[in-house]
């Protein structure tokens, strides 16, 4: 299989925080359309790996390619959507101004139309001109989802996307992720919410102290007993 046919390819990736190896020799090939739940205990290296995939941090050794291209290439970044720990939206701007800003930065043909569509999809259309600093926590989280998906990315990198979401934001995110899966988009999400993640995932990657303990299809055992994976691989 050529590099370009692999959505996310990690090759011998190491990352050091000082002398401590946060990631150790990660080898991973995620195919287009796969939805990967990136699991592991706190400090296992999930966020570090996702940040390198998103081009927000560089690998100490090894490379990560997205559809065969380096992650920091501009065309690659256009195909990637990132939803990290922070909501990455500006409190001093309105909802529509935030989305319009990112629409322009991603070079969308009609940023206004895309922004309005996503405001509707996330149930924020009536608050489009309200300043984000006046939004409730749930509204801010839904706007963050809209920001990450606005440019219809082929690869979605989500770092604990269900953490601290309210019920409505969880429903919006699950709906958006299901639709993304149906459209054949590739999803990599780190999470501690095993139930939500395994419901959506086609594959599981388990990190243990920076090493990839397991990467493969999500099995019925994992779905039936969410603790099975951690027990079986002694994490």
């Amino acid at each position: 299989m050529t590099d370009a046919a692999i959505a996310v390819a990690a090759s011998a990736v190491w990352k050091f925080h000082g002398d401590y190896p946060a990631l150790r020799d990660i080898e991973l090939s995620i195919l287009p359309g796969q939805c990967v739940a990136l699991l592991g205990r706190n400090g296992a290296g999930k966020t570090t790996l996702l940040r390198i995939m998103a081009g927000l941090s560089s690998a100490g050794r090894g490379t990560i390619r997205i559809f065969g291209n380096p992650v920091r290439e501009r065309e690659t970044r256009r195909r990637v959507g990132v939803l990290g720990h922070g909501i990455s939206i500006y409190d001093e701007l309105s909802a529509i101004e935030n989305l319009r800003l990112f629409g322009r930065l991603y070079g969308l043909a009609n940023p206004d139309r895309s922004a309005n569509e996503w405001l509707e999809r996330t149930g924020l259309d009536r608050a489009r001109n309200g300043l984000v600093r006046e939004f409730s926590r749930g509204m801010r989280q839904r706007l963050a989802v809209a920001r990450a998906f606005l440019h219809e990315p082929d690869v979605l990198l989500l770092d604990e996307p269900f953490t601290a979401l309210d019920d409505r934001a969880i429903a919006v995110l699950q709906d958006v992720l299901r639709r993304a899966r149906e459209q054949g988009r590739t999803i990599v999400m780190s999470t501690h919410q095993l139930r939500e993640a395994l419901d959506l995932a086609s594959h599981v990657a388990l990190l243990n102290r920076g090493k990839l303990g397991y990467f493969g299809e999500r099995t019925p055992e994992m779905l039936a007993d969410t603790g099975w994976l951690y027990r079986h691989y002694d994490v």
Binding site: A54, R77, V82, G84, G86, F102, L105
Partner: peptide, 15 residues
């Protein structure tokens, strides 16, 4: 810094 906005800018396809 608030809301980790720099991450979104660095991840965006701009030089």
């Amino acid at each position: 810094i608030p809301n980790d906005c720099l991450d979104a800018l660095v991840a965006a396809p701009i030089a």
